[in-house]
């Protein structure tokens, strides 16, 4: 049989049953489908953000703050106005950990156990790094500036909590906490899952199984977390 006929026979049978129409295992398909639904969860939070942000359009009493006046700190460079620099560093860390993750997957295809383990370890470190940065960012946000802002009832508000903040409308702080918090929670779960998988890799579980598909699956999750951050970064820090 020539190559071309095999290909047509192959094409004809894709949806014919007895095989996956996507040529992916059920586990990977499940992960994709789960990520799709998770994307909708994040979307609902971003929709809430868009709605509330737009409902402050043209509001002169409590205008929506500009991000470069809020997120302008950098560790060890106290008092300098460095807008967006720290969050760019966080983005860099997350993208880099995505790269090490995909390198681990690639090494898994070659069955190179040691490489997989090393790259997984780097990914975990990246994740922890990101979480630490987020902790620092939250601390800055909660502590606030030295001057603070006088609220209408005369109390001077420093930083932010869920009820009010010195930067602008209450919803600004609330949405910051819930959007980045929900993302951070995903990163945290991702780190936990990555650690489990890393231990399995080191123990040789996947070596025995004959493939590293599990690494691919957590890889998908990890890249998704990265993907969400791209949009959080865009919507919360840039726009």
């Amino acid at each position: 049989m020539s190559n071309a006929t095999t290909l047509t026979a192959e094409k004809k049978g894709i949806w014919g049953g007895g095989r996956s129409p996507f040529s992916v295992s059920y586990g990977k398909l499940m992960m994709w489908v789960f990520l799709l639904s998770d994307a909708f969860t994040f979307s609902s939070l971003l929709v809430a953000y868009g709605f509330i942000r737009y409902s402050f359009h043209g509001n002169t009493v409590t205008p929506w703050p500009s991000p470069d006046h809020v997120f302008n700190h950098f560790p060890f460079l106290h008092g300098m106005h460095l807008p967006l620099m720290f969050v760019s560093l966080m983005t860099f860390i997350l993208i880099f950990s995505s790269v090490t993750m995909v390198l681990a997957v690639e090494a898994g295809h070659r069955m190179a156990k040691k490489e997989v383990a090393n790259y997984m370890l780097l990914t975990i470190l990246g994740g922890i790094g990101f979480l630490s940065c987020q902790a620092w960012e939250w601390t800055q946000f909660i502590t606030g500036t030295h001057e603070g802002k006088e609220l209408f009832n005369g109390i001077i508000m420093h930083g932010a909590n869920l009820h009010s903040n010195e930067y602008g409308p209450t919803a600004f702080g609330d949405l910051f906490f819930i959007v980045t918090g929900f993302h951070g929670f995903h990163v945290f779960s991702g780190v936990m899952i990555n650690i489990t998988i890393y231990l399995n890799v080191v123990a040789g579980t996947y070596e025995k199984r004959g493939h590293y598909e599990m690494v691919e699956k957590v890889g998908l999750y990890w890249h998704f977390v990265d993907l969400v951050w791209v949009f959080v970064f865009t919507f919360y820090y840039l726009i």
Partner: peptide, 30 residues
Amino acid sequence: FIFLGVVKAYFIVGVFMHMKFERKWLPYLI
């Protein structure tokens, strides 16, 4: 900015998440 975000998403999903190399139905589905 949103456009640039979508471009970045394309690269992450396409290359990192391997979508570019999957059968065409999976991207459609997702």
